[in-house]
């Protein structure tokens, strides 16, 4: 009898789901959500696992320009001109973005959990999320956005694991190169332009969107003298 019940149960599942593979979310308790604020004011949202109330997973956070081992921003703007030219001919720009907690920030969050939940609470890692192929550019300065979009030579997808990187490379020709060059001396032109990385639960529902001001990227890049090469 038990055997037949098992088979019949399997048959039911086959009838119901057939070959379709629905997307499924990581089982966390949405009602158990809590927020930790890091020293740098970044908010980290955490959810306890459904079957382990002491194990917490965090949503993507802390989108930023990634850095090298020596903490140089992973940013490059380089323009050039020929000897015969009076002004810049062309240029390239390359950046790498990343998200997630640093080792120190993980400790901050761990201490936050201990304070807010229990001494046994533990950071398990990042929630499983999905992301689209490319980041989005939003903002009011449509001309600059169009220039960036039109100059994007190649770019990798949005990383779905913390510490993963998203690389983008731009090639600016002629007037476009000169325009971007000018904006590096006048960073306010980047005001209101954002890089957006939307993340989705694995069932396709929106989970969280990370935003990073383009001006922040440019500020970090231009502060680093070895990241910007412009002909004199």
């Amino acid at each position: 009898m038990n055997y037949r019940v098992l088979l019949s149960g399997m048959a039911i599942l086959n009838l119901v789901f057939g070959l379709t593979v629905p997307a499924f979310s990581q089982a966390v308790s949405l009602s158990g959500k809590l927020t930790c604020v890091l020293i740098n004011k970044e908010e980290v949202q955490l959810f306890p696992a459904q079957d382990n109330p002491m194990g917490f997973y965090y949503l993507p956070n802390n989108l930023r320009l990634s850095t090298t081992e020596t903490l140089q921003p992973e940013f490059l703007f380089m323009s050039w001109k020929s000897e015969a030219s009076a002004e810049t001919d062309n240029g390239v720009m390359h950046w790498l973005l990343t998200w997630g907690l640093s080792k120190e920030q993980e400790k901050e969050v761990q201490n936050c959990l201990i304070a807010k939940v229990d001494s046994n609470a533990i950071v398990m890692g990042a929630l499983t999320v999905e992301a689209p192929e490319k980041f989005l550019l939003s903002g009011k300065n449509k001309d600059l956005i169009a220039l960036l979009q039109g100059s994007l030579s190649s770019g990798a997808g949005i990383p779905t694991q913390p510490g993963g990187k998203s690389a983008s490379s731009f090639r600016f020709l002629g007037e476009d190169a000169r325009k971007v060059e000018q904006t590096l001396n006048s960073l306010d032109k980047w005001d209101g332009i954002f890089i957006e990385m939307p993340f989705y639960w694995t069932d396709g529902h929106p989970a969280h969107t990370l935003r990073l001001a383009a001006k922040t990227i440019m500020q970090s890049g231009t502060k680093c003298s070895e990241c910007v090469i412009i002909p004199k």
């Binding site: 499924f24 140089q72 940013f75 380089m78 390359h94 790498l96 997808g157 070895e226 090469i229």
Partner: peptide, 30 residues
């Protein structure tokens, strides 16, 4: 010349990043 300049004149990054894409399989509670 352009590529070498991005390698030699900066200590930050070069105009070359590499991206690998994988799929992996997990069991989920359906």
């Amino acid at each position: 010349q352009i590529f070498a300049a991005t390698l030699e004149k900066t200590k930050s990054i070069a105009d070359l990043s590499l991206n690998l894409s994988f799929n992996y399989t997990v069991r989920v509670p359906a």
